[in-house]
Amino acid sequence: MEPSELLAKARARAANPSDPLETLAAASILSQELSRDADALLDLAVHHARAAGTSWTAIGDRLGVSKQAARKRFAKPFTHPFATRRTRREAACSFCRTPPGPRVHMVHGEAGRICADCVALAGEIVADLKAKAKH
């Protein structure tokens, strides 16, 4: 997708498309979503490559990193199935239940946690409510 198409998409999401700061905020949220989707795509491609028998060395070479860096980034560490289940559930986002992870940013409060995606969604909801209240 071209940057101009992405900017148009961000403007369409903005509460007030003529306000550059509203467009910037919408573009920031869109950028986070695209980054998360790109990470998921890369994770899936590496998983398929490993399932097909591709070595960590070959994967690292293709990605321009060492095999150790590729393995550290994409290999799932082994933990006992019951060892972290409760801890991860308690540390998950209080709204969408997304578990914590290296690419999941959380805001911690007294009564719970909220992930960056839920913060962004809440911002969009509040902006929509403000826009509706003005009319």
Rank of each mutant, 00 (worst) to 15 (best):
G60I: 00
R62P: 11
A45F: 14
V46P: 02
R11C: 03
P99W: 11
A91G: 09
K72T: 08
R73T: 00
E2P: 12
K72H: 09
F82K: 15
T54C: 04
G53L: 03
S66Y: 05
V126L: 13
A52I: 01
S18R: 15
P102C: 10
R97C: 01
E22M: 06
D43P: 06
V107K: 12
L41H: 10
G60E: 08
C96R: 05
D37E: 14
A69E: 00
H105W: 15
T57R: 15
R113C: 06
P102F: 10
A51Q: 12
A14W: 01
P100L: 10
T87A: 14
A52P: 00
I59E: 03
S28F: 06
V126P: 08
M1H: 08
L63D: 02
H47L: 15
P3Y: 02
S55V: 04
A58T: 09
A14P: 00
L129C: 13
A12G: 10
D19H: 03
L129R: 14
R97M: 04
T57K: 14
A116R: 13
L42C: 08
A51G: 04
T87V: 14
A14G: 09
V104T: 00
K76V: 11
T84D: 14
V46I: 09
A69C: 01
R86K: 10
N16W: 11
I125Y: 09
G123T: 07
P102V: 01
M1S: 08
A69R: 03
R50P: 01
E90N: 02
V107P: 01
T98Y: 01
Q68F: 03
Q32D: 14
A122H: 11
A83G: 13
Q32H: 15
S35Q: 14
L6G: 04
R13L: 12
D39G: 07
A127L: 00
A15R: 00
L63H: 02
G53T: 07
A38S: 12
R62C: 13
A27V: 05
N16T: 14
R103P: 04
G64F: 02
K132Y: 13
E124Y: 05
A52Q: 00
R86S: 11
L42R: 06
N16K: 15
T98L: 05
D61F: 02
P17Y: 05
L121K: 13
L44I: 11
G112F: 06
A12Y: 03
L6P: 01
F74M: 01
A120F: 04
E22V: 06
F74Y: 01
D61H: 03
T23G: 00
A122T: 11
D39H: 09
I29W: 06
A8H: 06
C118V: 04
P77E: 05
A127W: 06
T98I: 07
P81Q: 05
V126S: 09
R97D: 07
P3W: 03
C115W: 00
A10Y: 06
L34V: 12
W56F: 02
A25L: 07
A45Q: 14
S18N: 15
G109W: 06
V65W: 06
H135V: 15
K134R: 09
A49G: 01
K130L: 13
A25W: 05
A127H: 02
A127S: 04
P77G: 01
F95D: 11
L41V: 12
S55Q: 04
G60L: 02
L6M: 11
R50S: 10
A15P: 05
A75R: 03
L42V: 05
V107L: 15
A70Y: 03
